[in-house]
């Protein structure tokens, strides 16, 4: 089963110069757990900031989220897979790197995200499709 079948195409982006407070606002507003971080310099690859980064690197340290920029704590570059890759490849990558999500890229452009929940759903569907061969 291909990554393109189960990736989430709706991704939210934030500028690397925005404050962590802005990022928190966006995450809560959209009810998501990560944002793609865009650099002002478009040649630089995209990064990612997650709720986990914000809680562990800012809030739990007692730092002021208004004074810290997203680019300071985001991870660069994002870990990418191709939309034509098999889900199993993405799953292996996530396991090896202990990541909850990988991004789906075409060239330098992020076109989707594949999270643990998507992988779980894909494996369920694959099992169900195999039903008549079992």
């Amino acid at each position: 089963m291909k990554v393109s079948e189960f990736m989430t195409k709706k991704i939210e982006c934030i500028n690397a110069d925005a404050s962590i407070y802005d990022a928190i606002e966006r995450l809560l507003d959209k009810r998501i757990r990560s944002l793609v971080v865009k650099n002002a310099n478009s040649h630089k690859p995209d990064g990612v900031i997650t709720a986990r980064d914000i809680v562990f690197k800012v809030l739990s340290e007692g730092k002021d989220p208004r004074r810290i920029k997203v680019g300071e704590i985001a991870s660069f570059p994002v870990v990418c897979v191709s939309p034509d890759d098999e889900i199993s490849k993405a799953m292996r990558l996530m396991k090896e790197m202990n990541y909850a999500r990988v991004f789906v890229c075409e060239g330098n452009c992020v076109i989707g995200v594949l999270a643990l929940m998507d992988v779980m759903q894909a494996s369920l569907v694959e099992k169900a499709r195999a039903g008549n061969h079992a």
Partner: peptide
């Protein structure tokens, strides 16, 4: 299995 997969979709 099929029921769960249909709910996923």
């Amino acid at each position: 299995d099929q029921m769960l997969a249909i709910r996923v979709y």
